[in-house]
């Protein structure tokens, strides 16, 4: 099956509990989907400059700049959306503001608007993402896919449910129209939300909560991506202390009771951890969305590691 059939959406929203590695996964997905001559855009919206840190580049400006190439000659560009700049751009596009836009900034109006009505901030951010995803030049889409490093699971429902927030505030007018357009786009087959998790209790719980939230909002959940999975190291058999001592003696290694007991303790802790992980894996499977597992990368994430993770995502069925 070709990559496009396995990852059919145009906009891939990547969320997950803080600490699960959603920025890393979003970047790896952007590389995977750019392979073989495609072009993707990796977008962040929270002002954290996580993409720049990950790729080891200077802080990203409000512009789409290349950050990586993909296997087979593809290109990944990155964009850090700033709500203030997005608002000015939006106003300029629809209202031809010119000088008045600067006046807005000078009066602190933009800071004010995004403070008092954070829902509007989200409309601007998602609106910019929609614009980039649907942008076409000379009859062709500029990006084959857009990957959004989205807010974490705790805020994702609210972030994507832009109409609810703005409808409360703006019952008429251009902001309402804009938010309705964005909402329709986010609910269309063009968009899929992928949830990154670890085999740990809190992230799995939040994954289940996010699936429920998004389903209620009629936003389509794509895949659940289990990050940092360690390969199993232990068969079903448990080694007794006697077996351990014999093995250590045979290998010419220290076989004192302290070492044997230490190994035994380590194996027991490992088994406990494995059992917890198996239970959590079952809980994830019960959510009935495709699971993708990504390997644990011991040395920290660099460009080589991103390419490995991108490969793992590409070969996903």
């Amino acid at each position: 099956m070709v990559l496009r059939d396995r990852w059919p959406a145009r906009l891939h929203v990547v969320t997950g509990k803080g600490g699960t590695g959603k920025t890393t996964v979003a970047a790896a997905l952007a590389i995977a989907l750019a392979s073989d001559g495609q072009r993707t855009l990796l977008v962040e919206v929270e002002g954290r400059q996580g993409i720049a840190q990950l790729f080891g580049t200077p802080p990203l400006p409000y512009a789409e700049i290349p950050v990586a190439s993909a296997p087979g000659g593809g290109e990944v560009r990155a964009l850090a959306v700033d709500p203030e700049e997005a608002l000015l751009e939006y106003l300029d596009m629809f209202y031809k503001l010119g000088r008045a836009g600067k006046a807005l900034k000078r009066f602190g109006a933009i800071d004010f608007a995004t403070t008092i009505a954070p829902g509007m901030r989200d409309v601007l951010l998602t609106g910019k993402v929609k614009e980039a995803t649907t942008r076409a030049e000379a009859g062709h889409r500029v990006y084959d896919a857009v990957i959004l490093d989205a807010p974490p699971t705790g805020r994702i429902g609210r972030f994507l449910n832009v109409t609810a927030e703005t409808a409360r505030l703006a019952r008429l007018g251009p902001i309402k129209t804009q938010s309705e357009g964005v909402a329709a786009f986010l609910r269309s087959p063009m968009t899929a939300v992928h949830i990154v998790t670890l085999l740990e209790e809190m992230p799995v719980q939040e994954t289940a909560d996010a699936v429920a939230d998004l389903t209620t909002l009629e936003i389509s959940v794509g895949r659940i991506i289990v990050n940092s999975v360690q390969p199993p190291l232990l068969g079903t058999g448990k080694a007794t202390r006697t077996e351990l001592r014999k093995a250590l003696v045979a290998a010419g290694l220290p076989a004192d009771p302290g070492t044997v007991a230490g190994l035994h303790t380590e194996a027991k802790a490992y088994l406990t951890r494995r059992e917890v992980e198996e239970t959590l894996r079952d809980e994830l499977a019960a959510l009935h969305h495709d699971l993708v597992e990504l390997p644990f990368i011991p040395g920290g994430i660099d460009r080589a590691a991103l390419l490995d993770l991108a490969d793992a995502l590409r070969s996903t069925q």
Binding site: L233, L234, A251, L263
Partner: peptide
């Protein structure tokens, strides 16, 4: 090294130790 030369549960435990 010892795990590579061994089979069975004891080898697994030594691998767990090395990973830890």
């Amino acid at each position: 090294a010892a795990a590579a030369a061994l089979d069975g549960p004891a080898a697994d435990v030594l691998r767990i130790h090395a990973a830890l």
